[in-house]
Design a protein around this nucleic acid. Sequence first.
DNA 1: CCGATTTTGGAGTTGATACTCCAATTTGCC
DNA 2: GGCAAATTGGAGTATCAACTCCAAAATCGG
Lengths: 201, 201
Amino acid sequence: MTTQRLTRKGQATRDRIVTAAARLMIEQGVARTTIEDIQAAAGVSPSQLYHYFPGKDALVSAVIEQQTAQVLEIQHSGLGSLDTIDSLTNWRDLMVGILTGMQCAGGCPLGSLASDLSESDPVARVQLAGAFEQWEGLIRDGLVRMRERGELAADADPADLAVAMLAAVQGGLLLSQVRRDPAPLRIAVDTMIDHLHALTR
Amino acid sequence: MTTQRLTRKGQATRDRIVTAAARLMIEQGVARTTIEDIQAAAGVSPSQLYHYFPGKDALVSAVIEQQTAQVLEIQHSGLGSLDTIDSLTNWRDLMVGILTGMQCAGGCPLGSLASDLSESDPVARVQLAGAFEQWEGLIRDGLVRMRERGELAADADPADLAVAMLAAVQGGLLLSQVRRDPAPLRIAVDTMIDHLHALTR
DNA sequence: CCGATTTTGGAGTTGATACTCCAATTTGCC
DNA sequence: GGCAAATTGGAGTATCAACTCCAAAATCGG
């Protein structure tokens, strides 16, 4: 499925469209984002946009794909070398830093899209469920490694803890977005880290 | 501000409109919900709708108000008599039951609206921030009562724990909505209850 | 039961939005 | 340099959504 019929210039244009669409869709919601908005933000004409995407749905799908890759990339950089409980604090700082950098606006790219599309686009819902599953897997793998090193109690359940941690991140991001304050995310994640800490003994 | 210029019949019509609008807006998003959809669902004509609300924004505001009252009512019924840690489990069952009853669709009414409107309707954002603050207050009050009874360690921070608990609920609901499975909500809340349990000693 | 007020019906208007079409231009390959 | 394919420009269309208007009917206080 390597689209080699795309010129370098064409690829650049396509990327520009997806990136512009992602920013707008996450910021103001998919339904509120018009094709014209995207055209203006990407600096392309209608025919260009419809040359690369059959319609809005395909564009939404491409945005989800791009954002999934981007989030997993960031998460991997923060969770990949998870060995100490304290290294979780760095991961927390990474997320709080990103959130603060965007003035707490937008929340989680995947969370926003999930809440937006879950009930109105079944295909997107499944696509996003897959994204969250991968994210959860990244956390779970880190916890398993920690347990193997004895940093986590043997009877702790990495699978459940990963779900709870991901929920804390998503819920914290939502509350931070509504309140325009990074504290909820920090507190939610810190509380889960405390919990892991308690499970060490 | 007691709208006494509303006949009993008029009040009923207004309520019908708000309830129909709430269901649609939460289910498919505010922007995707057309006035015509609401008219059809409520069984009213355009002039009726515009007789009670100046425009869509006012309708959105009324929906938030109604949903806030409804959610706080349910939360109060589950958190009001919080004295034992085990009573938290009943509260969890209440929420999981409601979610399961709606096939995990829609997620949290307030959470959905918050994610939908935070970046596109500043007034709604503030309104929703207030709703979450009250909800958080309900949880915090319960935890304070528990601490006073010695069910929670004296050095536990009810304020932070309330934020983390609310985040767990919101994140759990989002994940459950995307996966169409009540498990994430249950696991996220249970993990927080475990954490409180650990803080008892 | 009467007059003032509230409530309702439904056709109409204005603007926006997703999408189309075709011809012109650029790009990559030999 | 030349040809085929990819890319681009911009005007045009059909549909839909928010909102308006005015007159008819129901309701309520006295």
